[in-house]
Simulated assay, not measured.
Amino acid sequence: MTLEQSSQAAGPGTVFTKGFQRATSSPWMLLLPVIALYALVLVYPLAWLLGKSFVTETGYGLANYAQVFDTSVFASVVYRSFVIAIEVTVLCVLIGYPLAYVIHHSPPRVRVIMTAAVVSPVLVGALIRSFAWIAILENRGIINSSLVASGIIEAPIPLVYNRVGLMIGMVNVMLPFCVLPMVAGMRSIDPCLISAANSLGASPLRGFIRVFLPLSIQGVSAGALLTFLLSLGFYITPALLGGRKDSMIAQIIQVQVMNLGEFSIAAAMGWLLMVVTILLLLAYGRFFNLGTLFGSQPK
């Protein structure tokens, strides 16, 4: 009996099973659809954008990058973006660490509820939350109306379309991305170490400072880095809640594309932002585990 006759005798189900077993014998064969999808929706657009950043009026070159670095406005915007991202990161760490500590030490059911409460705002779009903050912080919003009605202030306080509103909105959006890596880092800490410190005479505060806090630094650094990177390239909340003096990199890129039609310069700005992001990730990976950025427990 020939091979073709044996295949027909075995039936289509057997042929499919053998073909599947042959494909699964090589794990890379199973990854081909995923690799093709990433190449189509991620690698190709980034490569096209990179090529576009070198297109000039006379051909190809580094003129777009030179123009970006020669523009004083771009330098001031980059500086402002870094300052705002650092401020948001510091506030998220200061607010998020006690919250992550409480979540970590809560009973399992309470921990699930609190984690869901932290994550649930992510399910609501940043655009909707930004408009909600405008309604809350504006002159006739809940805060100013309550303060004026109670006699604490005589006139509304400007809380929106300035740095105050920008910080409130961005901290609200970025806080979950800071808390979750912290919780993951705290869960990797062996509770026996804390018990050992207490048994050796350390007070709860001393045990926290000398044992728990140093061991949780990796989770804190992961949450801080993730918050900083997301804040650096954020667009919606700064555009809606910030003022003219609070423009960030993403807003300048939007102006270059939509208002000025300088797509090549915008592509150069976008790639410079991506290079900064990659360098920060590599610097973080030099000292810490990159897996903690995505919620995995550090080893």
Rank of each mutant, 00 (worst) to 15 (best):
residue 1 M to L: 10
residue 1 M to W: 07
residue 1 M to N: 06
residue 11 G to M: 00
residue 11 G to I: 01
residue 20 F to C: 15
residue 38 Y to N: 11
residue 39 A to W: 11
residue 40 L to S: 06
residue 42 L to E: 08
residue 44 Y to N: 06
residue 46 L to Q: 06
residue 46 L to I: 12
residue 52 K to Y: 06
residue 54 F to A: 08
residue 62 L to Y: 10
residue 68 V to P: 02
residue 69 F to A: 10
residue 70 D to I: 00
residue 73 V to I: 13
residue 74 F to G: 03
residue 75 A to V: 12
residue 77 V to L: 07
residue 77 V to S: 01
residue 78 V to M: 15
residue 78 V to T: 14
residue 81 S to C: 05
residue 83 V to L: 14
residue 84 I to T: 01
residue 85 A to I: 10
residue 87 E to M: 14
residue 89 T to L: 04
residue 90 V to G: 03
residue 92 C to Y: 02
residue 94 L to A: 06
residue 104 H to C: 09
residue 105 H to V: 09
residue 107 P to W: 11
residue 114 M to K: 01
residue 117 A to F: 04
residue 122 V to P: 07
residue 128 I to L: 09
residue 130 S to V: 03
residue 130 S to Y: 06
residue 130 S to D: 12
residue 131 F to R: 14
residue 132 A to C: 05
residue 133 W to L: 12
residue 135 A to M: 13
residue 140 R to N: 15
residue 142 I to W: 13
residue 145 S to A: 13
residue 151 G to I: 12
residue 151 G to R: 09
residue 159 L to R: 01
residue 160 V to M: 10
residue 161 Y to F: 14
residue 162 N to S: 03
residue 163 R to K: 10
residue 165 G to A: 02
residue 168 I to D: 00
residue 178 C to V: 08
residue 189 I to H: 03
residue 194 I to M: 12
residue 194 I to K: 02
residue 194 I to N: 08
residue 196 A to P: 12
residue 196 A to W: 07
residue 202 A to Y: 09
residue 206 R to Q: 04
residue 212 F to D: 00
residue 213 L to V: 02
residue 213 L to K: 04
residue 217 I to R: 09
residue 218 Q to H: 13
residue 219 G to W: 10
residue 220 V to S: 00
residue 222 A to T: 04
residue 225 L to W: 05
residue 226 L to F: 03
residue 230 L to K: 00
residue 239 A to R: 10
residue 243 G to H: 02
residue 244 R to H: 14
residue 244 R to D: 14
residue 245 K to N: 15
residue 249 I to W: 01
residue 249 I to S: 05
residue 257 V to T: 01
residue 257 V to Y: 07
residue 259 N to D: 11
residue 265 I to K: 12
residue 271 W to R: 08
residue 272 L to W: 09
residue 276 V to L: 10
residue 276 V to R: 05
residue 279 L to M: 09
residue 282 L to V: 10
residue 287 F to W: 11
residue 292 T to C: 09
residue 294 F to T: 12
residue 297 Q to G: 07
